[in-house]
Design a protein around this nucleic acid. Structure first.
Lengths: 122, 122
DNA sequence: CTCGATGCAAAAGATTTGCACCCGA
DNA sequence: TCGGGTGCAAATCTTTTGCATCGAG
C-alpha cells in the first residue's frame, strides 16, 4: 500500500480524534487543497479492507475510527451527538449464532441511542 | 391517527413480510398509483414514532419490521442478503450503561454480518 | 367542513464512479 | 518508468421537504 500524503493525513487525524469521524468531518478538518472528498472515501474504504479502521453507521452517516486492540462500540446522545465508547461483550453470542445457523460471521455493528445527563435537563 | 388506505396497505405488507422491508421495497410491492414513495417514508416514520414498527440500518438502507412482543435483531448474509431473526439479550448491558453514564437510553441497533452456509460454498 | 395526509417535484445529503492526469516505489 | 492514487465533476441512491390538493372523521 502506497503511503501517500493524503493517506498519512487521514491516518493522523484518526489517531488524534477522540471520537469516530465521518468522511465529511475528515475532509473539513484538512485544508481543502490537500485532498478531495472522494479520496477520503476511497482511503477509508481501503483502511477498512486492511482492517486498520472500524466503522459504524449512526444517524444516516458512516463514522470511522482506528481499529484498536479491543473491539468496542459507541453510545450516542440524540441531543448533542456526543459519543461514548462502550465495551463489546458479544463474542459468546457470535459463537452461538455461528454454530446454530452455520454462519461464517465477519463482523457486527451495534449502537446505543439515548440522552446524556446534560441533554436530559434541557 | 387516521387510518388511510395507504397506511393500511403498508401495515398489511409489513404483517405479511417474513423479513424487514425498506421503503423502496414496500413501494415496489404495491401498485405505483396506490401511493407515493414519500408517503411510504412519512408513514414508516410515523409508525416508528408510534412504536408500531422497529427499524434497523443495514447496508446503507433502513429496514422496517413490525414491533413484535419480543424485541430482536437480524443477522444478514453478505452474499445473498438473507436475513435471520436473532434474539436480543442486551437488556442488562443497557441497564449498566444507563447507570454508569447517566444516560436515558431510548433504543439500540445491532446487526450481525457474515455468510450463510450456501454462500460459503460458492 | 377541517386539518391532517398525500402526490409531485425538487432538494438535500451521503457515497460512488469515470476518466484524465499525477506521483511514489 | 508505470501502475496505483488522486482530483474533478457528474451520477447514484436514499431520504427529506415545500406546497397545492385531497379526503377521513
Amino acid at each position: 500500500m502506497r503511503m501517500t500524503s493524503q493517506r498519512k493525513q487521514i491516518l493522523n487525524l484518526l489517531k488524534l480524534a477522540k471520537r469516530p469521524l465521518s468522511a465529511e468531518m475528515i475532509y473539513e478538518q484538512l485544508p481543502h487543497d490537500a485532498l478531495n472528498l472522494s479520496t477520503v472515501y476511497r482511503t477509508l474504504d481501503l483502511f477498512f479492507k486492511e482492517k486498520m479502521v472500524a466503522k459504524s453507521f449512526m444517524q444516516q452517516t458512516t463514522y470511522y475510527y482506528l481499529n484498536e486492540e479491543k473491539h468496542h462500540h459507541y453510545m450516542i446522545c440524540l441531543g448533542c451527538q456526543k459519543m461514548i465508547e462502550i465495551a463489546c461483550h458479544l463474542d459468546d453470542m457470535e459463537k452461538d449464532l455461528a454454530d446454530k445457523h452455520h454462519f461464517d460471521i465477519k463482523y457486527h455493528d451495534m449502537t446505543v441511542y439515548g440522552y446524556c445527563q446534560a441533554c436530559q435537563n434541557k
